[in-house]
Each structure stands twice: as C-alpha cells, then as structure tokens.
Amino acid sequence: MSNTQSKYLARISLHKKQVRLTRGLLLILFLALWEISARLELIDSFIFSSPSLILSCLASMAMDGSLFYHTGVTVMETLLSFLLVVSISLGTALLLWSNRTLFEILEPFLVMLNSLPKSALAPILIVWLGNRMRTIVTAAVSVALFGAILTLYTGFFHTDPDKIKLIYSLGGTKKDVLTKVLLPSSVPLIISNMKVNVGLCLVGVIIGEFLSSKAGLGYLIIYSSQVFQMTLMVTSISVLCLVSVILYQIIALLEKKIL
C-alpha cells in the first residue's frame, strides 16, 4: 500500500472515531446535565424525572417482569401488523400491476385512504372490532398499508420496459416478467418500503394502545399520564425509542445481507 493510501485510510478511520466519540459524549452530557439539574433541584424531578429515577424504574420493572411483558406486547403487535402490511401490500400491488384497469378503478380510493389521517379511524375501529388486540393491529395496518401499496405499485409500474421487452423477445410470458424481472429488480424498493413500514406500524400500534388496551408501551404511557407517574412515562418512552431503533436496525441488517 502506498504512503498516501495509508494516510488516507488513517484519516477516514480517525474521522469515524471522532464522530462516534462526539456522539457518545453528547448523550452522556445530556444525561449528566439532566441528572445534575434534578439533584440540584433546578428542575422538578417529579415532573421531569431523572436518569437515575428512570434506571431504578427500569430495574424494578425488570424485577417484576412488567418491562418485558409490556415491551413484548408492543413488539408482537408491531411485528404482526408489519408482516400483514408487507404481505398484503405486496400482493395488492402485484394484482394492480397485473391488471391496469383495476388500478385505474381503485386509484382515487387508494389515494384518499392514504391521505386520510388514520388516527381518525381508531375510535370507529374500537366500536367495530372491540377493545382488543385485533383493533390495535388493524389500526397499525391501516396506517402503513395504503402508502405501501401505492409506493410498490409505482415502483412496479416503472420497471424498465426494455427489460420486459427482452423477456418477451426471448419467448417469455407475463409470469416470467414477474419472476425474472419485476420481483428481483424490486428487491431494493421492497426493503426500503419495509424500513418505512416498520416505523409506521409502531406509530399505529401506539395510537391503538392509547385508545384501547390493557397492555403495551402505549398503554403504559397513557396509564402513567393518568396517574401522573412521570418517571414511568419517560421510562416507557425511552424503551419505545430503543424498540424503534432495534426494529429499524434489523431491517437495515437484512438490507445489507441481501443487497
């Protein structure tokens, strides 16, 4: 390796280290400031809580198992709705791609459902489906589904026409276009759509849990606000942050593996 190349590599690795270090320091600084101002009573820890209170809350929740129970419920609901969104949107988008007339008929409805604020549907879902988990999953699916269908369909529709022509010129059928061109060329699109959808499903699950549930992180947040236990609330939100990061990272990892 030449001298300039090794210098270049050293510069990159130094830069990466600096970014990581600053990032960590920023987080520590924030937590330390929060803790100190709570200890010095610059802020009211009853309202703003503090990192140490959150840690002890986490510990006690871990001891009695409620931490894992509520997190588990939210994660399970999110994964279930995510799987439903991925499979239904893929199936529907393929159906619409294979039948252009059907798309023309349904397009305005899909656009309307996509732009409708889905939280408006939650109360009606409770009435229709009851105060149950399926209501939460339905709410979460409704948040992500219509956008997912439209994104996938648009991607499918813009598949390179010459690649399709190539398949036909070699004697292939529409099914071959689907399996040899459309699906393989859409893998990056499908995965980037999954990244968006996992976040949207989590949003939908929390909306659902706010309105109707007896368990889950959304339930904990609403419950703690009603009994004014701010530490429990901030703890739940922190766990929620962690959950969303982990779910996103799982798909990012999948993307790295496949692409």
Binding site: K163, L166, Y168, S169, V187
Partner: peptide
C-alpha cells in the same frame, strides 16, 4: 409467437444484463 421459440434472436440497444444475476 415472439421470438418464434428461439428461432429469432433480438439484441436491443442497451445490453439489459440483469444486475442481480
């Protein structure tokens, strides 16, 4: 039928090689 069962070969302007293969 298009390509007449492989008897006619059609080469397009661009190579259109599939990047995933």
């Amino acid at each position: 039928s298009p390509g007449q069962q492989g008897r006619i070969g059609y080469m397009l302007q661009k190579d259109h090689l599939f990047e995933w293969r």
